[in-house]
């Protein structure tokens, strides 16, 4: 089914009354996901945002609760604020990334109320990629540039209209507001099929990476891998699946807040114990953690790799550490007999 962009725009603008709408816009620094009030503000021709949209569910710096001591009384207040939200224009890699984050923040052992409440009250409208950047490699992970996993609705841009695919009940409910939906013409169907069959030209073979990493904890591979890394947090902060955080107290006199802040395995402080001991005191241990977590531990725990091939870390790394080359290097590394 398709909807003209004009009709879609009207439906989009009508959502503003009930939802906070997050969509790609063009800013001083490229493409960013930001709050919008009208479809006219939305950037339609874009590859992907510079930073992933994960911050709308898992903010970089988030107040969990605040507290105050007055005399002998202590009051504690929840800081959880949740709005009904529509995220529009999420690319298939990032939508898949949300599904991976769901596994961390909502599983049979634990549900994170902050993440989960926001996630529950959101609808994700994915938009398939018509153009593929040279650093995109989502096909390596079985994700398609027009993949629907993680989206509630998937749109495929046909120029003047969108092909609309309803993926979940939430998506269907939202699409019920769309007027004048019509069937695709044969030409449009052909275009949809073409976009759906696209694969990223850049691919990395991950078929045996997990089992290879099972045997690589003590490999000399890590010694040389880490040399050029400067240990900043760009790769983690720009990753749609990285989710490590730190919880700290921001206290002033008799009141304070408990905050959760993004942290990263590349930072030595992340694992520094109160005793002064640091189990990952060397960069090579930190890099091993990064790769193992994404391509081994996460697979063992959740049955999927924690990388969606969005390529942001490749583009933003100040020293051009290319995760594709890192995986390839691990695939080819000689195993040391222990």
């Amino acid at each position: 089914m398709k909807i003209s962009k004009e009709k879609f725009g009207q439906a989009f603008d009508a959502l503003v009354a009930e939802y906070q709408i997050i969509a790609p816009v063009s800013d001083a620094n490229g493409i960013a996901f930001k709050g919008v009030k009208s479809f006219s503000e939305v950037k339609q021709d874009y590859l992907n945002s510079k930073l992933p949209p994960k911050a709308f569910f898992f903010p970089q710096h988030e107040k969990l609760m605040s507290y105050k001591k007055e005399g002998k009384d202590v009051s504690v207040k929840s800081e959880l604020k949740v709005e009904n939200t529509v995220l529009f224009g999420i690319r298939p890699c990032d939508a898949k990334g949300m599904q991976l984050l769901d596994m961390v923040f909502k599983n049979d052992q634990y549900t994170d109320p902050y993440y989960y409440e926001r996630r529950e009250k959101s609808v994700i409208i994915g938009v398939a990629c018509n153009k593929i950047a040279p650093t995109c490699f989502c096909s390596s992970f079985g994700i398609s540039p027009a993949g629907s996993e993680g989206s509630d609705l998937l749109l495929i841009d046909l120029g003047d209209s969108y092909d609309v695919e309803m993926i979940t009940e939430k998506g269907k409910a939202l699409a019920a507001r769309f007027e004048a939906l019509s069937e695709l013409s044969a030409d449009e169907q052909a275009l949809v099929d073409k976009i759906k069959s696209a694969v990223t030209p850049s691919k990395v073979d991950v078929s045996n990476t997990t089992s290879k990493l099972d045997k690589m904890f003590n490999s000399p591979f890590w010694d040389t891998l880490q040399e050029k890394c400067i240990g900043c947090n760009v790769c983690s902060f720009s990753c749609p699946t990285c989710h490590c955080f730190d919880i700290s107290e921001e206290v002033r006199k008799n009141e304070g807040t408990r905050v959760r802040t993004w942290d990263a395995c590349m930072a030595p402080l992340f694992t520094l114990h109160g005793s002064g001991h640091n189990p990952r005191d060397q960069k090579k241990a930190r890099w091993r953690q990064r790769l193992m977590h994404k391509f081994n531990y996460f697979v063992h725990n959740n049955g999927a790799m924690a990388c969606v091939g969005c390529g942001r870390c490749i583009k933003s790394c100040p020293v051009n550490m290319d995760i594709r080359q890192v995986i390839d290097g691990a695939n080819k590394a000689e195993l040391v007999v222990e």
Partner: peptide, 11 residues
């Protein structure tokens, strides 16, 4: 614009 990734400091 700064996201406090500390790439500047580390570079």
């Amino acid at each position: 614009k700064c996201i406090r990734c500390y790439a500047c400091r580390n570079a």
